[in-house]
Design a protein around this nucleic acid. Structure first.
Lengths: 123, 123
DNA sequence: GGATTACGACTACGGGTGTAATCGATTCGA
DNA sequence: TCGAATCGATTACACCCGTAGTCGTAATCC
């Protein structure tokens, strides 16, 4: 099966679960309250869709569910990053970095860290 | 106005126009024939939607339109890249690079190019 | 123990998207 | 000249997405 895509709103829910799990639907909604103005029902719908997509699972706790992520954040981030690099930069990462660089996205620490990374990769 | 998002399929059409423009709908469809199995009508629909979104314009040439991009590729690529960095890496690019480094091995040339870029930025 | 609350399941609904078919007008080919 | 091809415009339609409301049921409060 092609891995089902996770929408933007669903992703926000995943971020909560990646940070702390298992959680009830209500707890997820509370964690999101600052960032998004969603009703509890909306969060429950998103959790249900994520469950159908196989991205989260739940354990029953009495009458409630305790949700946990199945999809690992690294896998998700990796897939999304690769998608972007493939779509926009012909699969090569260097042009992406060049592009980010031009937009002055890098702080001095960023530059230092990237240099360190490059050094590691070369050895 | 919030800049209208461009969908995946629409983006494929934009890539054609960014490469060569102006083009008729038929020419765009021909250019896409290798990559996607779209009917001519599908391409025309996408061109029409892109026009409505303000991403492409056309000049009338007799009974046909000659389409050209309005949205610049750099702007699109910049927006999409920033979106990803914001959503997945808290707005910082270094972690993205670290991630790319871990999973899709950079070639020696990539490393050299990145190093060169970093050098430029530091000076 | 009856009313309220809280849960997950199901339903809803407008807008976007992928993927066209159809329509009305025009032009082109024979 | 008249049917065929072609153009953009309009319409279609199923599925996804954002954003809930409602329903049936089970627990809880008084």
């Amino acid at each position: 099966m092609a891995p089902e895509r996770i929408s933007d709103a669903e992703h926000a829910v995943m971020e909560v679960l990646w940070q702390r799990a298992p959680l009830t639907a209500t707890e997820v909604a509370e964690a999101l309250a600052d960032a998004r103005e969603w009703s509890l029902q909306t969060v429950k719908t998103l959790l249900s869709r994520l469950t159908n997509k196989g991205a989260v699972s739940y354990d029953q706790d009495g009458r409630r569910y305790l949700y946990s992520p199945i999809l690992a954040r690294e896998d998700y981030v990796g897939d999304e990053s690769r998608r972007l690099v493939d779509r926009l930069f012909g699969g090569r990462a260097a042009p992406l970095i060049a592009h980010l660089a031009e937009q002055q996205k890098f702080t001095a620490e960023d530059l230092a860290e990237i240099e360190r990374l490059i050094g590691e990769l070369k050895s």
